[in-house]
Design a protein around this nucleic acid. Structure first.
Lengths: 124, 124
DNA sequence: CGTATATTCAACCAAATGGTTGACCAAACT
DNA sequence: AGTTTGGTCAACCATTTGGTTGAATATACG
C-alpha cells in the first residue's frame, strides 16, 4: 500500500511546491514568458509587448511565476527585470521522471533515485 | 539540445497538450492517484478508497487524468480499471528539459532513458 | 426476479483563475 | 516644477475548478 517511497512525494512542503509549479506551467502565456526569458532577462514591459493582453495581466502572470520560483524579479530604477530560475523545475522534473520508469521492477531504482535527488532540491 | 525542442514548445497542438497535462498534474489528489497507479492498475472504487472526498469527485479527477492522457480506463464488467499511461508525461518532460540550462542533476540518465523509451511509443 | 455493487450524471455551490479597466506610485526626462 | 514612463493595485467580471448531493445506469449476485 503506502510505502516509504510515497512518503517522499506526499510530503506536504513538496506537494505544495509541485502544486504551484505545475499550476504555473499549465498556462500557455506563462510558458511562453518562460521561453522568452530563456533567451535573455527582460523588463516587465518588454515581456508584455508580444502579447495582446493588458500589462496588468502580464504583471499578474509574473507574480504567479515568481511565487512558483520559476522566475525572479529585481527592480533597478523604475524597471523591474525578470530572470529565469530553472532550478524550480527540478523538483517537478524529478517527480515526473518517476513515472517514466513504469516497470514495477524499476521501482526500487526510482526509490534510490529519489533519495539521491530530492535532498538537493527541497530543504525548506 | 535546446534548439531541437524549440519548435515543439510553440506548436499549437503541443501547447494544448501541455495545458491539460500540467493542469492535471497541478492537483495533489490527482498526483496521489498517479502514484497509486504506479504500483498497480486499480478499479475506480479502490482508487477512491484512501481519499476522504466523494466517489463522484474521484471519478471527475479520473476523467481529467484520462483527458490529459495520463491514465487510460477500461471497463470490464461493471468495474472500470485505471491504468497509468506514462507516455503522456514524456511531452511535458521534454518541454521542461528545454530549460535544462541548470546544472543537470541527473538528467543525462533521464536523457538516456528517453532514448530507450521513445521508439517504443504505444498508442492509446 | 429483486437487490446490492460500481460508476457516472446532473444540478448546484464556493472559491480560484484570467482577464479587464482606471486609479495610483515611483522613477526619469524635459 | 510638470509630464511621461514602468509597473502595481483595486474593484470588478466571466469562466473554470473542485467539491457536494441525489438520481440514474449498468452489471453482478442470490
Amino acid at each position: 500500500m503506502v510505502d516509504q517511497t510515497q512518503a517522499l512525494w506526499f510530503s506536504k512542503s513538496m506537494s505544495k511546491d509541485l502544486d504551484t509549479v505545475f499550476a504555473a506551467l499549465a498556462d500557455p502565456t506563462r510558458r511562453a514568458i518562460l521561453a522568452m526569458l530563456l533567451e535573455d532577462d527582460m523588463a516587465v514591459t518588454d515581456v508584455a509587448e508580444p502579447f495582446e493582453i493588458s500589462l496588468a495581466a502580464i504583471s499578474k502572470h509574473l507574480v504567479i511565476l515568481t511565487k512558483a520560483g520559476l522566475i525572479s524579479q529585481e527592480k533597478r530604477g523604475r524597471v523591474k527585470w525578470c530572470k529565469l530560475e530553472p532550478d524550480a523545475l527540478r523538483a517537478a522534473s524529478v517527480w515526473m521522471q518517476g513515472f517514466g520508469q513504469f516497470e514495477p521492477v524499476n521501482l526500487d531504482a526510482f526509490e534510490r533515485f529519489l533519495e539521491i535527488e530530492l535532498p538537493a532540491t527541497d530543504d525548506t
